[in-house]
């Protein structure tokens, strides 16, 4: 299920240090296992009505340390099921970043990006080149990610990958150099 290589959409711009409690509060996510229900609480800490305002195909652009705090995969799931198609941030918290690949939500790390994009700008995320094109046409390469992870993301995450290959992408992995 390889999706389109270029994701074009309008942006929601978030500040530094947006943690997983803001993205989806525990008390809601601990009471459902349904991703569509989780999406109703997406970005609740900033705006409990966010789910009514987000449109399919929107993108997130954020400052540093996006997704800090808990390991809750419900955070990227809530974003993905809000039909937000990619998250671009200056940096990601470790577990959140892993979770994005594990569920097939494109997550690109681009230095300085939050200063270059305004709320509701149109941007383009290129999953082939692993880069972001801002409104003025300039192209910003994202931090490189090993091919096995990009492949995992392209195939839609671990469930889809496993169903197709009956193995996990790292099972045949030779050590990847730094």
């Amino acid at each position: 299920m390889t999706g389109p290589n270029v994701l074009k959409g309008r942006t929601w711009v978030w500040p530094d240090d947006v943690n997983t409690d803001i993205i989806i509060p525990f008390r809601f996510k601990a009471r459902t296992n349904d991703p569509v229900e989780m999406a109703k609480y997406c970005m609740y800490g900033f705006d409990p009505e966010f789910y009514k305002k987000v449109k399919p195909g929107d993108l997130f652009v954020a400052g540093k340390n996006f997704g800090g705090g808990s390991s809750r995969e419900q955070a990227p799931v809530a974003i993905k099921y809000s039909n937000v198609v990619a998250v671009v941030a200056e940096s990601f918290a470790r577990i959140f970043y892993r979770n994005c690949f594990a569920i097939g939500l494109p997550a690109l790390e681009v230095a300085g990006i939050s200063k270059q994009v305004k709320q509701f700008d149109e941007i383009e995320v290129n999953l082939q080149d692993w880069s972001v094109k801002t409104r003025d046409g300039s192209v910003h390469p994202a931090l490189k990610v090993p091919e096995f992870l990009r492949g995992l993301m392209r195939e839609g995450g671990l469930v889809e990958f496993y169903k197709r290959h009956k193995s996990f992408p790292w099972e045949k992995l030779e050590a990847v150099p730094a």
Binding site: I95, R98, N99, L158, Y162
Partner: peptide
């Protein structure tokens, strides 16, 4: 720490 899908992968493999 890891997330739920990776945990499922650890349970499997």
């Amino acid at each position: 720490g890891i997330g739920s899908s990776e945990m499922a992968a650890v349970w499997a493999s």
